[in-house]
Structures are given as structure tokens and as C-alpha cells.
Nucleic acid binder design. Structure first.
Lengths: 282, 282
DNA sequence: CGCTGTCTTGAACTGTCTCAACCATGGTGG
DNA sequence: CCACCATGGTTGAGACAGTTCAAGACAGCG
């Protein structure tokens, strides 16, 4: 799995909406636009300021159990949402990229139930919790956008359950890659080639397997010719094949199986498609 | 595990708020009150009607992929939220009881991403999606309540990830029981004794293990004297012990372990507390 | 340079899945 | 009334996949 010739990830299209580079001048209108809500332009939204904050790689936005005074909207970069056990094990719950809301689950409690930290140089819009009622009243579009963002986060959280529901570790990884691919596409970046901002360990935590298993699963997917992996750079070679592979489910288990029609396959025989890609990397 | 003398589950305290028994006359005020939002009484909320719907055991509230035209608030009963794979495997994503919102994840899309069905005789408030913008504008408290409910659902979805993150199946079951206990308590029912409305198969799906494993895990927890189980009736005998057990994590894996201080324990020796309870049931 | 952290690979162990019985229950209908 | 079936739960036994432990490659960095 060593790659003498790293992939060049250059075809990143420009994300929709402007990405403010300055700490001042951001308004709710910017936030609404980023979130994809068709805000009736020339609104008062353009006159309500929102604080904008840069977050350095490794820096924390929220600590588990700390008083929750604000929610955030990712403007740029990547964040990791996680919980830490008493024994120090770090359970990753989600990765968040542009336009996602962070801290939505803290709206119903006084403290953050999760920790949030940046995986790279990032930036967020900050909305103090105490401002939310006023904002919702003054700008109905904001309230609806917040609902939409929270709804999306919930839907994605359930996709994570889909990942962890898979038995085979390679299937989990395949599902993760497909979801990640889709989200990259939603952000205007290439769905086929991207750079993972998180390490194997963090992926393994999200997937619910040991980090060594993630390594091996990457190797397997690569051997099957579905992806090309080089450290944290990923290229999906066969999107359809990866999708089919990701759809392998837990052996029907006890699903209402009509007759003796049980397939004795446990893990897909991988229907031997072009099984190179290792030849590329070795 | 056969129980000749079933537990009597009788100490169910009355849930807070009224439980309308009629299909007419429900208002947003009822809904707000159920959700625990301190609605400024004598509001217009008391004059805005909400439709109330009874759902029979086994009946579906929403089908996966069907047009999403409404969200629901559980008034009484228990619901199952799940997804069905192409191959018929049913992945349970959540169980919902009184005051929880259903369909929140459909706010950001046109169709329900999940199916919802009742596990027993139940009832819900129905809020058409198209009414939401108007309701939010006319009744800011409604919008805030919806945010709160969505936030809670997200937080609970993340608790499910905590469950599935546990390696040992008994730990998963213990975590499930503790969460269920807490939710029962929030509903004004006993946190120590309750009747599971779902079958072993549905629990196994939520936990991400085989249903036989759930059976064995129940037996284990029972043998440890932590719980008393009789079919679907559960009594938690040692809440602290169950909590400690549930906190057993995946072997620190690769957590920053300072020195050679690794504990060679994999699954808790269960610090042998009163290990009867099987004697009670046999 | 050694050090540290990330990633990979190998080999042994073990917990869960899988398959297969078995029991209890409840409904059905002869 | 009882045979019959379907459903849900429990238990046993073997096989396999993932964890665990161990070691090595590699890159970044003070």
C-alpha cells in the first residue's frame, strides 16, 4: 500500500457561495445563502451581522460537558464530533463539512453532549443560543433554515447507523466512502477523488472497528479494484461496483425467508471485476 | 429463562400532561404542553387546532420513500423507526415514546427516509409540513419546540451510536436498557420495571447483533444479578452495577496509553455482586 | 539524529454469527 | 378436544471474522 506517486487532487470545483476570508462583515444573509435557503434577497437578513470565527487544526469548538452557549455553521474545513469515555477511548460520532450545523443537539440541554474539534484549518459562523429566539422571530427564514440543518444532521446520523449495521468491515468502509463521496459532491468538490482529512484511527472509531481492520479493509477494496488508496488520498475507480459492494447486507439473518432459498454467501465473492489497482500502487 | 410467575407491572405513574382520548379538540397548546415547553398560558396556541390520530398496533405512520407530508408527535404508545434493505433485512434505527417527534429527518427532503410503525396501540399529533412555516411565524413557541424536539432526537440518535460502539454484546444490551430506563422515567413511568414493547429481533437489529445473541446477553445480565428478565418484562435489580457494566468500553484500543499500564481485562469480571436472580426465575 | 505518530502487515485468540434444535404460546379448524 | 401450524424465545455447537498483540516501514520534527 505504499504509493510512490501520490494522486494529484486538483479538480476541486469552487464551492457554491462566497467564503468570507475576513472576520468582520458576515451577515445572516451569507449564512442563509450558504445553507442553500433561497432567501428573498435584499432582506433585513443582509443587515444582521453574524460572528465569524476561524478555527485552527486541532482546535476545539466545544468540549463535552461544557456550557453550551452557541451553535455553529461550518463555513470551511472539516470537523470531528466525538465523545470521550472515562477510560479515554474516543468515539467519533460524525465528521462535518461546509454548511453543516454543529451543536444542534445542544439546543435541548445546557451543556454540549459532544466535543467538536477541527481536523484542518477551518471556519464557522457562530450563533449564540440566546439569540436564536429573537432571530427566529425577526427572520422566519432563519428558523426554517435551522430546522432544515438539524433535520439534515439527524438524517446523516442515521446514515451512520447504516454504516455500523453492516457486518463486514469492508462493507462498512465502502459505505463510509460512498457517503463521504456524496457529501463532497454536495460541497461542490469531486466525488471521485478526495483527501480524507481524518486518520485511520478516527475512521475506525466511526466505523466501530479496530484501526488495523480499517487498514486491511482499504487494502481489500483496493485489491478488488474498487478504489485506489494512497495514504489519505482516495480515488474511487468503480463507483457502481463500490455501491453494489456497500449494499451487501448482514446475512438475511431472520428476515422472512420464503423457502430454502438461502444464499450461502457471507461476504460477496466480489464478482471479480478488474482486480488491479494494487499493481498501480506497488 | 422461563418465568412461571410474571412480574406485575403496576407502578406506572401517570404521565405528565393530559392524554386526549378524543379525536377532536386538540390544540397546539396541548402539543406544547406535552413537549414540556412552558407555553405562556392563555395563548392563541389554545385556539389553533391540531389533528390527532390513533394508530393501531402494527400500523404504519410512514413508509420509506413515500412522500413526506407531515411530521408527528407521539402522544401515547411506542413506535419503531426503521429502514428496510433491498434484501428484506430490517434495520431498526430508534424506538420512540411519548413526546418524541417523528419524521423530523424528513423536513429536509421530499420523502421519508425511514419507515415508522406502531408497536402497540398508539396516538400522535399530526402537523402537516406545509403548515410549519405559518405555525412558526404565528407561534414562535412552536418553532422553538420543534427545534427542541429535533435536537433531542438527534441527541438520542447519537446515543444509539454509543450503543453500537460497544464491542461486547452484553454491554450493548446494558446500555440499551439504561437508555430505555431513563426514557421511561422521563415519561413518568418506573425506570426500574417496565415492559419492552419490542421483540428480541427488533432489539437485536437496534443493537447490531444476532437475535440469539440478545437472548444470551439477557441471560448473562440476569446471571450477573443486574436485571430480572421474564419474556418482555424487565426489572433492573442493580442500577449502579448495570451502569458500571455498561461503561465497559472497547479495549482502549489505541487511546493514548501513557505507559505499560494496560489492563488485560477484556470484558468486566462483573465484580460478582449478588449473582442470584436466576434462582428467582427457575 | 533519535523520536514520535501514523499506517501497514503478520499471527494467534476469541466472541459472535450461523445453523440447528427445542420449548412455550396462541390461534385455527377438523 | 386435540392435532396442527406459526410465532417468539432459548440454548447448543462449529466456523469464521475481527480483535488483540507484536513488529516493522515511513514521514515529520525538535
Amino acid at each position: 500500500m505504499n504509493c510512490p506517486d501520490p494522486i494529484q487532487i486538483t479538480d476541486q470545483r469552487t464551492p457554491r457561495g462566497p467564503t468570507p476570508k475576513k472576520s468582520v462583515g458576515s451577515t445572516i444573509a451569507d449564512l442563509l445563502q450558504m445553507s442553500g435557503v433561497p432567501v428573498g434577497s435584499s432582506d433585513i437578513a443582509a443587515r444582521v451581522p453574524v460572528s465569524f470565527r476561524k478555527v485552527h487544526a486541532g482546535e476545539s469548538l466545544a468540549h463535552e460537558g461544557a456550557p453550551a452557549d452557541a451553535i455553529f455553521f461550518v463555513c470551511a474545513g472539516t470537523f470531528k464530533v466525538f465523545r470521550t469515555d472515562k477510560d479515554g477511548y474516543e468515539q467519533v460520532l460524525a465528521f462535518a463539512i461546509r454548511s453543516e450545523v454543529l451543536g444542534f443537539d445542544a439546543l435541548c440541554m445546557a451543556t454540549y453532549p459532544v466535543a467538536i474539534s477541527a481536523l484542518e484549518e477551518s471556519a464557522v459562523y457562530v450563533v449564540p443560543k440566546c439569540d436564536i429566539p429573537r432571530l427566529c422571530e425577526a427572520l422566519p427564514a432563519f428558523g426554517l433554515m435551522l430546522q432544515h440543518a438539524g433535520s439534515l444532521t439527524l438524517a446523516r446520523s442515521r446514515e451512520l447507523v447504516d454504516i455500523m449495521a453492516a457486518v463486514a468491515s469492508e462493507v462498512r468502509l465502502a459505505r463510509f466512502l460512498i457517503q463521504h463521496s456524496r457529501r463532497m459532491e454536495d460541497c461542490g468538490q469531486s466525488p471521485r477523488r478526495f483527501l480524507l482529512r481524518m486518520g485511520r484511527r478516527e475512521i475506525s472509531s466511526l466505523l466501530g472497528v479496530a484501526h488495523e481492520t480499517v487498514s486491511r479493509s482499504f487494502t481489500t477494496l483496493s485489491t478488488l479494484g474498487l478504489v485506489h488508496v494512497c495514504a489519505r488520498e482516495v480515488e474511487i475507480l468503480d463507483m457502481d461496483g463500490l455501491g453494489t459492494f456497500a449494499r451487501s447486507t448482514r446475512r438475511q439473518l431472520d428476515a422472512p425467508v420464503p423457502a430454502r432459498a438461502r444464499t450461502p454467501v457471507h461476504r460477496l465473492p466480489a464478482q471479480g471485476r478488474h482486480a488491479h489497482s494494487l499493481s498501480l500502487a506497488a
